[in-house]
């Protein structure tokens, strides 16, 4: 049952992304993407990561995509005729190269029987929190510095002269 659900979600995810990257307007692509990210969040939940699933919805679907929408609106990029769409000439190298990469990866990742899988286990939030603050405490500091400087950089570039 869960396995079937996983495959259905995977299909939704991939189709959503396909639609998103071929959409004619950026806004539509954002909407498709939000859909796929919801599916992705459910897959995370199925894979035993409820916390990441929640963050996926909150941060990705909620914050980052809205930021994109906001910028699109602000720059008034919406009128479709103003923007060049990728034509076949642009898609061909993309298809070729992405195809080559995915082919190679699939060969590498699926060609061998994996070592005995211990089976998917759910990881409790407590364990997650312990790992976060006991093992990787410094990572939080580094990322916080990075977020701070994202702010600094954005403010610097946005400064009116």
């Amino acid at each position: 049952m869960e396995a079937t659900l996983f495959y259905i979600l995977a299909a939704v995810l991939l189709i959503g992304i396909l639609l998103a990257i071929t959409a004619r307007q950026a806004v539509r692509s954002i909407v498709y993407l939000v859909t796929s990210f919801f599916a992705l969040a459910l897959m995370f939940y199925l894979l035993g990561a409820p916390l990441i699933a929640a963050f996926e919805v909150i941060i990705y679907a909620g914050a980052i995509m809205v930021l994109f929408l906001f910028v699109i609106m602000m720059l008034e990029l919406e009128s479709p005729e103003k923007l060049a769409k990728p034509n076949f000439k642009n898609w061909l190298p993309a298809l070729l190269l992405a195809g080559a990469v995915v082919g190679a990866l699939v060969v590498l990742l699926a060609s061998r029987v994996q070592a005995v899988p211990p089976g998917f286990t759910e990881i409790p939030v407590r364990q997650f929190a312990f790992a976060l603050f006991k093992q990787y405490g410094v990572a939080v500091e580094v990322v916080s510095m990075q977020l701070l400087f994202a702010l600094v950089g954005a403010l610097y570039l946005g400064r009116r002269r």
């Binding site: 642009n90 995915v102 990866l105």
Partner: peptide, 19 residues
């Protein structure tokens, strides 16, 4: 991997739009 490659394809194909 499929998702990764689709993302890569999107980056390569959409040269006209940074967003």
């Amino acid at each position: 991997s499929l998702m990764f490659a689709m993302g890569l394809g999107c980056v390569i194909a959409w040269r006209a739009n940074v967003i």
